[in-house]
Design a protein around this nucleic acid. Structure first.
Lengths: 120, 120
DNA sequence: AGATACTGGTATAGAATTTATACCTTCCGG
DNA sequence: CCGGAAGGTATAAATTCTATACCAGTATCT
């Protein structure tokens, strides 16, 4: 059997999937939950610059898509734990690679930008 | 020497790099140019649903960042060829993995969404 | 009892980005 | 001089993201 889904087709369901995993903050959350579950405020502190609204919306969307689980823990004080599901963990490999690419190619990009600026 | 750049820091330059490679249409263009260079209209036809404005802006940004090259070919009729640079090709591995994840996990996501809908 | 702090969020408005749609210019063949 | 292809621009509307402030529940401090 051949390829069932193709990103390049405008109406392919894989488009909505890609749109979600490519959303502004998804890559941060997946990478943050790499080692262990985290609480809302932990995530907010770890992913610097994210607003609580953006964090809430991204977490809700990822939970809806089955990428993370949300568990209310009735301890004192009560808190909420977010963790990757098996599906979410399978996304870790590609998204960690994206993160690592970004972190390791900063000098190349900066050099290219400087050269482009110099040419004009 | 340890890690020089960290995505999680709000002001880290890797943030702007990630912002670019995570931009709406970058993953499509990188995957489209996987096998061979393409012309503007070819890309537009291949990546269904992209508008010419979005395509122009994404190509210009990627050229600025040194990910693709733009070559005007003075043949008859004259046309323009976009190709991945070495740097752009290095992005192919992670972004192809993202594409493949999206294409292969559609059923998992749809199942999760249906379950979430059923629960309410 | 009242003030204060922590957790996990909401609300609202403004700014930035994306999309839709239409149009333009150069080059050429007929 | 008409039409078509290539490679785009222009403009406005829709959508998404960001900044900033606020809120409710529980617990502890005074």
């Amino acid at each position: 059997m051949g390829k069932a889904y193709n990103i390049m087709a405008a109406t392919c369901p894989s488009r909505t999937v890609l749109h979600r995993i490519g959303a502004r903050w998804t890559v941060f959350i997946v990478n943050a939950l790499d080692n262990r579950p985290m609480r809302f405020t932990e995530l907010k502190a770890h992913i610097r610059g994210i607003t609580p609204k953006a964090l809430t919306e991204t977490l809700r969307a990822m939970e809806y898509d089955g990428l993370i689980s949300r568990t209310e823990i009735p301890a004192h004080p009560p808190h909420v734990e977010y963790a990757l599901t098996d599906l979410g963990r399978s996304l870790l490999t590609p998204l960690r690679a994206v993160r690592e690419w970004a972190e390791s190619h900063v000098p190349d990009i900066e050099r290219a930008r400087a050269q482009a600026d110099a040419r004009r």
